[in-house]
Computed example of a mutant assay.
Amino acid sequence: MLTAATALTVLLGSVTLAAAGAGTAAADSSALLPLTSSGDIVVDGVHRRVFISDPAAGQVVVTDYAGTVTGTVGSLPGVRGLELSPDSGTLYAAVHDADAVVAIDTATATESRRISTGAGAGPAYVALAGGKLWFSYGASGDGNIGSLDPGAADPAVTLGQDTGRTFYDAPILDASAGAPGTLVAGAPGQSPVALAVYDVSSGEASRTAYAFDPGGTGGANLQDLAVTPDGEDVVTASGAPYYQAVYKLTDLSADGRYVTNTYPNAVDIAPNGDVAAGTDSSYDPDVHVFEQGVPTPVRQYDLPNTGTPGDSDLLAPAGLAWAPDASRLFALSRNGGDAYALRIYDTPAVTR
Rank of each mutant, 00 (worst) to 15 (best):
Q59P: 09
V73L: 07
S85M: 14
L32I: 10
S85I: 13
V62Q: 02
Y65D: 11
G67Y: 07
P86G: 11
G78T: 12
S75L: 14
R80K: 15
S53R: 02
S38A: 14
L84Y: 06
I52S: 01
L82V: 11
G71M: 08
V50N: 02
A56T: 15
S53W: 01
L76F: 05
D44I: 06
D87T: 14
L32C: 06
G74M: 07
R80C: 08
A66P: 06
V60E: 00
I52P: 00
V69S: 09
D64A: 14
G74I: 07
A57I: 03
H47A: 14
G81C: 12
G58H: 02
G39P: 05
I52D: 00
G67M: 10
S53E: 03
V46H: 11
G81E: 06
S85G: 15
G78W: 08
S85H: 12
D40I: 04
P55H: 04
L76Y: 02
I41M: 12
G39L: 02
V62G: 02
V79L: 07
D40V: 05
E83P: 07
R49A: 08
T68M: 13
P86L: 10
D40T: 09
G58E: 01
G45L: 07
G45I: 06
V46N: 13
V46L: 15
S37F: 03
R48I: 05
I41W: 00
T63Q: 09
L76A: 05
R49E: 05
P77K: 07
A57P: 07
V79S: 03
S37E: 07
T70V: 15
G58K: 01
S38C: 11
T63C: 12
P86T: 10
G45H: 07
G58S: 11
T63K: 05
A57S: 15
L76H: 01
S75F: 12
S38N: 11
L82I: 11
I52Y: 01
D54R: 00
P77V: 11
R48F: 04
T72Y: 05
P55R: 01
T70S: 15
T36V: 12
I52R: 00
L32S: 11
F51V: 05
Y65R: 13
E83C: 13
G71W: 04
S37V: 05
V43C: 10
G78K: 10
Q59D: 08
V73M: 06
V61E: 00
T70I: 15
D87G: 13
H47G: 09
I52M: 13
V60P: 02
V62F: 03
A56F: 10
V60H: 00
